[in-house]
């Protein structure tokens, strides 16, 4: 026992961080993601100018001097469009994931903690939202209430939360039966404390993983909407570039390929980070 006295305290999160660091794919994903974030933040400052300006002849192929990715059907600089689009994609992705997780955790936590009629009502609500085809429903919202970025974010959040709510509820149902929760109740912890200080921190790992993946799917979602033309026409967006250049794929397939690769790499990087988090936080992989 005495040798243990000198042991360093290792919190579960510290151990998870250690596991994550050893996962090369996840670290690579994180590095790529940070690079994209840097581009989104700094890019528009360094590479200024309105991306919608016509700068050169339409369909200038990539590699032409000064235009790394060439120009699109309106002669707009593809690189500039991509850089400005990164900002939109990431902002919408993060904001929508935030909305999703906030709604999902609240609903899931209340349902899983209180059980009874509260759970019944909230889970019916969740099932109802799962019945609505996500993209169609957000198309309707955007069509009826206007295609601003804010509305797009809200629409994505509104259709995506059920997955988070289900996971949160399942974790709450599992953890609330564990003995340390009963022990905390016996130790005088109030309901609010049980929910947010005892159960929630222990329920977080799968929710964090889901939240990470949500950022990715929100980016895909935004790309889909803007591909269909349901976006703010005044901001550049990756999906929009693909959608508007779609008719010209025979003449200039790069106008579709390049922005697609941008989306692909971003979502891939997020998935790698999500997988890394999953492996690092999943208690099954660790001995008890």
């Amino acid at each position: 026992m005495s040798e243990q006295t000198h042991l360093k305290a290792r919190s579960p999160f510290a151990e998870a961080f250690e596991m994550f660091r050893r996962n090369h794919a996840a670290v690579a994903g994180l590095v790529i993601l940070l690079a994209i974030v840097a581009v989104a933040i700094l890019g528009p400052v360094l590479y200024s100018g309105n991306p919608f300006d016509m700068v050169w002849a339409p369909f200038t192929p990539p590699g032409t001097e000064g235009y790394l990715f060439g120009t699109d059907y309106l002669g707009r600089d593809l690189l500039s469009l991509l850089i400005h689009g990164a900002r939109v994609s990431l902002t919408v992705g993060l904001a929508a994931a935030f909305v999703t997780v906030t709604i999902g955790i609240t609903i899931g936590a209340l349902a899983g903690f209180y059980r009874g009629w509260v759970e019944e009502v909230l889970m019916r609500l969740t099932e109802f939202f799962q019945v609505l085809p996500t993209l169609l429903f957000s198309m309707v919202i955007v069509a009826l209430f206007g295609a601003s970025l804010l509305m797009i974010t809200i629409a994505i959040g509104l259709v995506s939360w059920p997955a988070v709510a289900r996971i949160t509820r399942a974790e709450f149902l599992r953890i609330r039966e564990l003995e340390y929760v009963t022990a905390a109740r016996a130790g005088g912890v109030r309901n609010g404390g049980l929910m947010f200080r005892v159960i929630l921190p222990n329920a977080l790992p799968p929710i964090i993983v889901q939240a990470a993946l949500m950022v990715g799917s929100a980016i895909l979602f935004e790309a889909g909407l803007s591909f269909l033309g349901l976006t703010d026409p005044n901001v550049a967006s990756w999906g929009q570039i693909i959608g508007s250049n779609r008719q010209y794929i025979l003449d200039a397939s790069y106008t579709v390929t390049v922005p697609g690769i941008a989306i692909f790499i971003t979502v891939l990087a997020i998935s790698l980070v999500g997988d890394g988090l999953n492996d690092a936080l999943n208690p099954k992989l660790r001995e008890r």
């Binding site: 990715g216 895909l220 693909i242 697609g260 692909f264 790499i265 979502v267 790698l272």
Partner: peptide, 18 residues
């Protein structure tokens, strides 16, 4: 699985079409 998830479906469609 990673690739299939990360590629936007309309983009995959266009690529297959091309």
């Amino acid at each position: 699985a990673l690739f299939g998830y990360a590629a936007p479906v309309f983009w995959t469609g266009i690529l297959l079409l091309i």
